[in-house]
Amino acid sequence: MTASLSSTGRAPTEARADRDPIPVTTVRTRTARRENRVPRWVFKLVSPVALVALWQLLSSTGVLSDDILASPATVLGTGVGLWEEGRLQEAILTSVQRVGAGLAIGVVAAVVLATLSGLFRRGEDIIDAPMQMLRTVPVIGLIPLLIIWFGIGEQPKIVLISLAVTFPLYMNIYGGIRNVDAGLVEAAKTLGLGWFAQVRHVILPAAMPNALVGLRYSLGSAWLALVFGETINATAGIGYEMNMAREFLQTDVIVVCLVLYALLGLVADFVVRLLERVVLAWRPAFSGA
Rank of each mutant, 00 (worst) to 15 (best):
G9L: 08
A11I: 09
A11V: 11
P12V: 10
A15W: 07
D20C: 06
D20L: 15
V24P: 00
V24L: 04
R30M: 08
A32H: 11
R34T: 13
N36P: 01
P39I: 09
R40L: 11
W41R: 09
V42H: 05
V42S: 05
L45I: 12
P48I: 00
V52P: 06
L54E: 02
L54V: 11
Q56E: 15
Q56T: 11
L58M: 12
S60W: 08
T61P: 01
V63G: 09
A70V: 03
T74N: 01
V75T: 11
V80H: 04
E85P: 08
R87V: 07
L88E: 06
L88P: 04
T94R: 13
V96H: 04
G102R: 09
G106I: 05
V108Y: 08
A110M: 00
A110L: 00
V111F: 09
V112F: 09
S117F: 06
L119C: 04
I126T: 09
P130E: 02
Q132K: 12
M133W: 07
I140G: 01
L142Y: 10
I148A: 06
W149K: 04
P156L: 06
K157T: 08
K157L: 07
I158N: 05
I158M: 08
V159A: 12
L169R: 05
Y170M: 11
G176R: 03
V185T: 12
A188H: 09
L191F: 14
L191Q: 12
G194P: 03
F196G: 10
Q198N: 11
L204K: 06
A207S: 10
M208S: 15
P209R: 02
V213Q: 10
G220D: 03
A222D: 00
W223V: 04
A225Q: 02
G237E: 02
M244Q: 15
D252K: 08
C257A: 15
L264Y: 07
G265D: 03
V267D: 00
V267S: 02
D269R: 01
V271K: 04
R273C: 05
R273T: 14
L275W: 13
L275F: 08
A281K: 14
S287W: 00
